[in-house]
Write a protein that binds this DNA or RNA. Structure first.
Length: 539
RNA sequence: GCCCCCAUCGUCUAGCGGCCUAGGAUAUCUGGUUCUCAGCCAGAUGACAGGGGUUCGAGUCCCCUUGGGGGUACCA
């Protein structure tokens, strides 16, 4: 059976690159009728953030990437948090030590750094010099008791290493490229390499799909597998997703954009911004010097305050910006993979059905938000209405929209219907937010092009009069009334609809005029037309 | 520095020696539809990084150059 796994380290929100890796792992497992495991690699005490695991799981679920084994769902290889598996690692660590395949080291970081520096000065690559004699277990115990930093290193074979990669074919590394590496840190935790290899074996992982940044790690992992008597799983090192600015798509990007904006706008008050972000002035200062990377909510709050739209990087950012998980998943799947039939817009089930590891591309791809938008639009059209409504409500809730309180499900569904063709929920809001506005502000451009035009005021007066007499307030009735006016005054729809649109929304963008008026309600419509007339009279 | 990976329209990609005067999608531009914005319909612009080979024949295979990405940790 095919078993894949996604093994993030909980350092923050799940970003799209990670989501894509998880997606491909899941797609492979589902396509083959296998299992998909989620494992949390939290062996680095310094980097982990307490809420990250929870958030990562939430984001995966939002995307519809559900794991068969892992945190919260359990499974035969429990637990799935590496920090809770230390006794397991210790056992295998001991085995390696006893068999003489790994050894204790007492080096300080400074000593290692010195050796590294020397190697660099002599223009050769640094390999840890294996000692001729190794400390005994007893000596290691004593060293630990004496407060020395004790690590364990794996003995790396001095041979050529060959990785057979599903995507890249045979990759050969010449002998002498790999030195003995640390498998147990001085805090007693295993390093990534060790924990990962042990867990993949114990969890029965058959296919490891990961970013190409891990390709160089594979020889280490294979050496470990060999030493421990484990099977070597199949490897597939995927291309990575790069950012528009070049380089790996990184979580730090949003901070970068925000920082630049603040620097470019000297009038912004640092102390105030720090307060808005809920940061100390000191932390804010560090952030501005690029020495601190605050988490999403803080960056969000500050950007929101100064009206800056940050590029979406984390899955949660896309959710907040009004994208559909169906579209995200579909789009992510097309980054480095293509369907044999050339189809691009696909449902989750189609992706599972058509997925094939052999069709993964070797080339890095750029995350193009414009294309995502296009996918999103397609999915907004095809996703079942109740699913779409659910997503819309989640979006509104996340953005604390007053719309949510003013409309029931039927009203919200209607709003989505009249905004058909929108690229995302932000578009829907751009068209419909006027409904809940207390004070209407008139867009100067709209005023100039429509309200200030000859005859606009008179038309609005006529419209108001006609509307007042309407017994029913429905789209066909309103539409009929407007058509009637057009006929009577021998003008096109535009001459009537546009002044109404600007009068009720303050802008030149809204849903179809009849639908817009129904949603606004008769009373408000008349009040706003009245207000617009007053606005024109005042000049 | 050393090691590894990669290279087709702006972007995502199809292509696995002749079906390629290189196909699709998206973006861009033009026209049409419409009460606005979207959308929809029709059309247009647009790529095999460069240089050597191999071959009757190369986008497809090999080498070099260039460019991009990654690694070089007691991070994962």
């Amino acid at each position: 059976m095919t078993v894949t796994r996604f093994a993030p380290s909980p350092t923050g929100y799940l970003h799209v690159g990670g989501a894509r890796t998880a997606l491909f792992c899941m797609l492979l497992a589902r396509h083959e009728g296998g299992k998909f495991i989620l494992r949390i690699e939290d062996t680095d005490q310094k980097r982990n953030t307490p809420t990250a695991t929870e958030q990562v799981m939430k984001d995966l679920r939002w995307l519809g990437i559900q794991w068969d084994e892992g945190p919260e769902v359990g499974g035969p290889a429990e637990p799935y948090m590496q920090s809770q598996r230390r006794d397991i690692y210790d056992k295998y660590m001991q085995q390696l030590l006893e068999e003489g395949k790994a050894y204790y080291c007492f080096d300080t970081p400074e000593q290692i750094q010195e050796l590294r520096q020397k190697a660099q000065d002599e223009k050769r690559s640094f390999l840890y010099p294996r000692p001729t004699e190794f400390p005994t277990a007893a000596q290691a115990e004593k060293a630990k008791a004496d407060g020395l930093a004790v690590t364990v290193r794996m003995m790396m074979p001095e041979t050529e290493m060959v990785v057979n990669d599903i995507i890249r074919g045979q990759v050969t590394f010449p002998a002498g490229e790999f030195g003995d590496f640390v498998i147990q840190k001085s805090d007693g935790f295993p390093t990534y390499h060790f924990a990962c290899v042990v867990d993949d074996e114990l969890m029965g992982v058959t296919h490891i799909m990961r970013g190409q940044e891990h390709l160089m790690n594979t020889p280490y992992h294979m050496a470990l597998q060999e030493a421990l008597g484990f099977k070597t799983p199949k490897y597939a090192h995927m291309s990575v997703t790069v950012s528009e600015g070049g380089g790996k798509l990184s979580k730090r990007e949003r901070g970068k954009v925000l920082r630049k904006f603040i620097k470019d706008n000297a009038e912004l008050d640092y102390i105030e911004l720090a307060g808005i972000g809920g940061m100390s002035e000191e932390d804010f200062g560090l952030f501005m010097k690029n020495k601190l990377a605050p988490d999403s909510p803080q960056i969000d709050a500050i950007a929101n305050h100064i009206g800056l739209h940050l590029p979406e990087i984390n899955v949660i950012d896309f959710k907040k910006s009004g994208y559909l998980p169906e579209a995200m998943v579909n789009f992510l799947a097309t980054l480095g993979w293509s369907s044999p039939d050339g189809k691009e817009v696909m449902s989750y089930d189609e992706l599972v059905e058509k997925f094939d590891v052999k069709r993964l591309s070797k080339t890095n791809s750029l995350f193009d938000r414009k294309k995502l938008s296009s996918f999103n639009m397609e999915h907004m059209k095809t996703v079942p209405a109740d699913t779409l409504l659910g997503h819309f409500k989640a979006y509104l809730e996340m953005n604390d929209s007053p719309i949510l309180k003013r409309f029931d499900d039927a009203g919200l569904a209607e709003m989505l219907r009249v905004c058909e063709g929108a690229r995302n929920f932000e578009d829907v809001m751009a068209k419909c937010a006027f409904i809940v506005k207390e004070e209407l502000e008139f867009d100067p451009k709209a005023v100039k092009k429509v309200l200030a035009k000859e005859g606009a005021k008179d038309m609005l007066l006529l419209v108001a009069k006609a509307f007042e007499g309407l017994g029913e307030w429905t789209e066909p009735v309103i539409h009929g009334a407007i058509e009637q006016l057009c006929k009577e005054h021998e003008v096109g729809m535009g001459k009537v609809a546009q002044p109404i649109r600007v009068a009720i929304s303050g802008s030149m963008v809204s849903p179809g005029i009849g639908d817009a008026l129904v949603m606004l309600g008769k009373e408000k419509t008349l009040a706003r037309i009245n207000g617009a007339v007053g606005f024109i009279e005042r000049g």
